[in-house]
Design a protein around this nucleic acid. Structure first.
Length: 350
DNA sequence: AAAACGGGGGG
DNA sequence: CCCCCAGTTTT
């Protein structure tokens, strides 16, 4: 039997039930694919359900504010996905009369939709025979064919895509693409794959060579940077101060407390900063660290050593630039990084 | 070609 | 602690 047919047979017997497998509505498929980029099904599922309920069609999503979208996305990470999701929804509604492109090529034009996502939507919704190549596919193909070309190089990306095109099932594109991904997720797992009971273990080159543990090959890991975030949590009784992160960089579009990024910030140095002086404007204050030890927030590419300084004051805070006063009750409505969300939940208990 | 972009889970 | 996850965009 053909490689693709074997995977499809396995898939039909082993696939999980998932809400986006109950529809071919391009809006729902697109939504699920964006949410699942670099994200496990278990983590993305509750977000998919929330979005599908809050925004049943692309029209409701397009009508939302970016802040609403970011708030619903809070905690999922890679927030550019949420901004692109919203921008694309508005584009589909305003320029395309609410109708999604129905080809791989057309889908590729959408913000936040790259090669993988365009292939996924085109195949699942329109049965276009264009193969998906995600982390699962790299693993399955590298093992089955014993390919040790690093998957995160131009040569590797090209080689695996070419192979995927050859293997593509032209009779059942939608089923085949989901089959190979599900096979990678459940059977040909990163660690401890079930090779003993694998339906294609009789022709797996990687298994034959005892190389399953070394495949796929991936080049070098990134080095982690350290950063030091000191948040000024103003508290004049019923209000605090928030500001939005603008421009490029981490957490773009999300809100946070006024920030001093500096390794040596302390209770004693804060009153010497320009931003603090302008804010309290000569008034009385007491600064207390929330915790003595910094909270280390670990991201894949940086470790953020974070301290929250509580600034009790009765003075009228002088807001600067993008800063805004926020009531204790309102603070939970703002989209914030999970790091701040955790702090807010403990400090501003409802 | 390399770096940036989150957060959580598994071993 | 390290790796990986239904990747894309920017530098």
């Amino acid at each position: 039997m053909k490689f693709s047919k074997k995977l499809i047979t396995w898939y039909l017997q082993n696939k999980r039930t998932m809400p986006w497998r109950e529809t071919k509505d391009p809006y729902r498929i697109w939504l699920s694919e964006i949410i699942l980029q670099q994200t496990r099904v278990a983590q993305g599922l509750p977000y998919y359900l929330s979005f599908a309920e809050a925004f049943p069609t692309v029209f409701e999503l397009a009508s939302a504010t970016e802040e609403q979208v970011l708030k619903l996305w809070q905690g999922l990470g890679y927030y550019s996905r949420a901004r692109n999701l919203h921008a694309t929804a508005k584009y589909i509604v305003n320029e395309l009369e609410g109708v999604f492109p129905d080809t791989y090529k057309g889908l590729l034009e959408l913000k936040g939709v790259g090669d993988y996502t365009a292939s996924a939507i085109a195949s699942i919704c329109y049965d276009e025979p264009t193969p998906v190549v995600d982390g699962n596919v790299y693993r399955v193909l590298s093992r089955y064919f014993g390919i040790n070309t690093p998957i995160n190089t131009t040569a590797g990306i090209k080689e695996f895509k070419g192979l995927a095109i050859e293997l593509m099932d032209h009779e059942q594109p939608a089923t085949y693409n989901q089959a190979i991904m599900e096979f990678g997720a459940l059977q040909c797992k990163p660690k401890n794959p079930y090779c003993i009971v694998c339906p294609i273990n009789d022709s797996c080159v990687g298994l034959d060579k005892g190389a399953i543990g070394e495949l796929p090959v991936k080049l070098k890991k990134i080095k982690v940077k350290k950063r030091y975030f000191n948040y000024l949590v103003y508290d004049n009784g019923n209000q605090t101060v928030l500001q939005q992160r603008l421009g490029k960089g981490i957490w773009e579009g999300l809100y946070e407390f006024p920030l001093i990024e500096d390794e040596k910030c302390t209770v004693d140095t804060i009153p010497t900063t320009q931003t603090f002086k302008e804010m309290v404007n000569g008034g009385e204050y007491v600064i207390t660290p929330f915790k003595e030890e910094p909270i280390v927030h670990k991201l894949s590419h940086q470790h953020i050593y974070t301290r929250f300084f509580i600034i009790k004051t009765d003075t009228n805070l002088l807001l600067q630039g993008i800063q805004k006063n926020v009531n204790r009750q309102e603070i939970h409505n703002y989209p914030v990084p999970i790091l701040l969300g955790n702090f807010i939940d403990s400090f501003f208990k409802v």
